[in-house]
């Protein structure tokens, strides 16, 4: 059952007024422009036991993604494709109101939005995760741990997932007819990626649209719209978060703002994923 949250991060009215009065002057509390992302760093290979990993820091938000894989049987309707599963954990160490336990609705929603962004964009070449058609495929687990909850966890999670996937190698396999020998200790091919995908979140706060909201902006925002994009501007996923509303004209405006902000993210991603031994296909 989904309940109106009661453990909200409370922002005092005076703080809200402060944030709004700065916005009226054309700036944000941390000095950013409305369309700016916060400082961003992406570090691949942060978790060495994972087949691929990436730590993303977006302002005060910290997210760590790890990729693991195992051999599996394919789904009956996709006998020649591998699978992937995304799971986001809002860890209790990430924020004062987070508690241990199974993922709550917020974590489930985040997982599913990241999953859809990766799936509908066809960013991962699932056909190349097939070992023996109808018999054996790879299942890729993309586990995303939120370590520091500082607003806009979705965009950080998407960046971490993509960077970790580009960092990841499958174990070495020797295929002999229908016989598959997996050599876990040796690196095989890279996880087959077609292209990167990014998510851009825009918060609607009063009459303002703010790209990459930090925690206080996010808390007092009426609603948030997150849009996933490919580099050519194609939209590969949308999710509206929160109980506020938007007019169709506002949707138009938000989409344009979000699309304009993707270039910075692709740029930052490419700094880490474009490498001579593989990575991004141009």
């Amino acid at each position: 059952m989904s309940l109106t949250p009661s453990n909200y991060n409370i922002v005092p009215l005076i703080k809200r007024e402060g944030i709004l009065s700065v916005l009226e002057k054309g700036s944000r509390i941390d000095g950013r422009k409305f369309t700016d992302f916060r400082s961003l760093s992406i570090t691949q290979g942060y978790a060495k036991k994972a087949e691929g990993s990436a730590m993303v820091r977006l302002g005060d938000t910290a997210v760590l993604a790890g990729v693991k894989m195992k051999e599996d049987v394919p789904f009956p309707d996709t006998p020649d494709q591998g699978n992937f599963i995304v799971n986001v954990e809002l860890l209790p160490l990430a924020y004062e109101t987070f508690e241990p336990g199974p993922p709550d609705e917020n974590a489930v929603e985040l997982s599913r939005v990241v999953d859809r962004g990766l799936r509908d964009s066809k960013a991962i070449d699932l056909k190349r995760l097939c070992l023996v058609p109808g018999k054996k495929v790879w299942t890729i687990w993309i586990d995303i741990d939120v370590l520091d909850y500082g607003g806009n966890v979705l965009d950080a999670s998407m960046l971490a997932a993509v960077a970790a996937l580009y960092d990841a190698f499958l174990p070495k396999v020797e295929i002999n007819g229908e016989e598959v020998k997996i050599i876990k200790e040796e690196k095989g091919e890279r996880v087959p990626m077609n292209y990167p995908v990014v998510s851009v979140t825009v918060a609607k706060l009063d009459k303002f649209f703010l790209v990459d909201p930090e925690l206080e902006e996010e808390t007092i925002a009426d609603t948030r719209l997150s849009i996933s994009y490919l580099e050519d501007g194609r939209i590969v996923g949308i999710q509206k978060f929160g109980s506020g509303t938007l007019t169709t004209q506002e949707l138009d405006a938000v989409e344009s703002i979000a699309r304009a902000s993707t270039s910075r993210l692709f740029e930052e991603l490419k700094k880490v994923i474009t490498r001579p031994e593989g990575g991004v296909t141009q």
């Binding site: 939209i235 949308i238 999710q239 509206k240 509303t245 938007l246 989409e255 699309r259």
Partner: peptide
């Protein structure tokens, strides 16, 4: 009120 209260997208669209 011309207000959008739910919006999701699964799949791909050009702008």
């Amino acid at each position: 009120l011309s207000q959008v209260t739910l919006l999701q997208l699964n799949g791909n669209f050009t702008p």
